[in-house]
């Protein structure tokens, strides 16, 4: 018979990776956030909570937090509601539903880099097709990525498009798992269209919707590539989110302020944990698990 030791042998490879590349770095992030940075990026002298105090008294960082919240809102909500609408439409229309589902899942084939590069070409103010088509309608040249009012919306729209495919896949799988008898019975009782969707399908999809809210929020809070490629955080920091700010302080323009960046990294982690906890506390009660 195998003793307890055997299980450790099987767990060891994973535990070693986690210890070296998750737990130790996490401790180190906290350590760095309590220190200044020397010119080589090493930990400087101990500064206590100074980095955090600097962050939260700086209007710039408060703006970063606000931008992060707006970006999360603008990218998560439309992508879930849009996917839900598409999936409900697909359910009503039998013929060709499979083809449409594959079409709606297509954005999932794009990485953050490929999607952002394509959108940067579409958004190009002079030669991009977005302005080309709008120009046909008599609309003046729109500065999608360089106008401070529009840039965050444009980056969010790109993100919504990217996430749509994933959301459609998840929700379609959820619809597929609803037992035929349930919808049949509701139809026999005279429910159809919006009523069927509102009373039967959406409540039965609530586990998938909840899953999407949690996962997309975490994902949005961690977004980086589309901002780096489309706007570099600009114009005038209008699209500088928390993760982008970490990147700027730690890695961009030879900045190497790892202390301040680490403090922001810890803020990021607290925000992610808090959002997840809140969503589990508030939303999960409304979820109907079969």
């Amino acid at each position: 018979m195998a003793g307890y030791g055997l299980s450790w042998a099987y767990l060891l490879p994973s535990l070693a990776v986690f210890a070296l590349f998750v737990f130790w770095p996490l401790g180190r992030s906290i350590y760095l956030s309590l220190h200044g940075s020397d010119i080589f990026g090493g930990a400087g002298r101990f500064v206590g909570l100074d980095n955090y105090a600097e962050l939260f008294t700086e209007p710039r960082f408060l703006k970063v937090l606000g931008t992060t919240a707006l970006f999360t809102l603008f990218s998560v909500v439309p992508a879930i509601l849009g996917a839900l609408a598409l999936v409900l439409l697909l359910e009503a229309q039998i013929r060709g539903a499979k083809v449409f589902r594959t079409i709606f899942a297509m954005p999932f084939a794009f990485s953050v880099a490929t999607a952002s590069v394509v959108f940067s070409i579409i958004y190009n103010p002079a030669i991009g097709i977005a302005n080309g088509l709008l120009g046909q309608l008599g609309v003046d040249r729109v500065h999608w990525l360089t106008s401070p009012d529009l840039a965050l919306l444009s980056v969010s729209a790109t993100t919504v498009w990217m996430n749509l495919g994933y959301n459609v896949l998840v929700l379609s799988a959820g619809v597929g798992a609803i037992p035929q008898e349930v919808t049949e019975a509701a139809r026999l009782d005279g429910a159809s269209g919006l009523r069927l969707a509102g009373r039967i399908t959406v409540p039965l999809l609530s586990p998938q919707l909840f899953f999407l809210v949690v996962v997309s929020t975490i994902h949005a809070l961690q977004s980086f590539g589309q901002i780096h490629i489309l706007t570099k955080g600009g114009p005038d920091e209008a699209t500088t989110t928390l993760v982008y700010s970490i990147y700027e302080n730690a890695f961009a323009y030879g900045s190497a302020d790892f202390g301040l960046a680490s403090a922001q990294a810890i803020v990021l982690m607290v925000v992610v944990l808090a959002m997840t906890a809140i969503q589990f506390g508030v939303l999960e009660r409304k979820v109907h698990y079969r």
Partner: peptide, 27 residues
């Protein structure tokens, strides 16, 4: 496999999912 403190070790595994990669990318 027989294991001591299975729930604790499993929790340790799952806790790694709660750490955003961007929060530990610097170290």
């Amino acid at each position: 496999l027989p294991m001591r403190a299975r729930a604790v070790v499993f929790g340790l595994f799952l806790s790694t999912l709660m750490v955003p990669w961007e929060a530990i990318i610097i170290p």
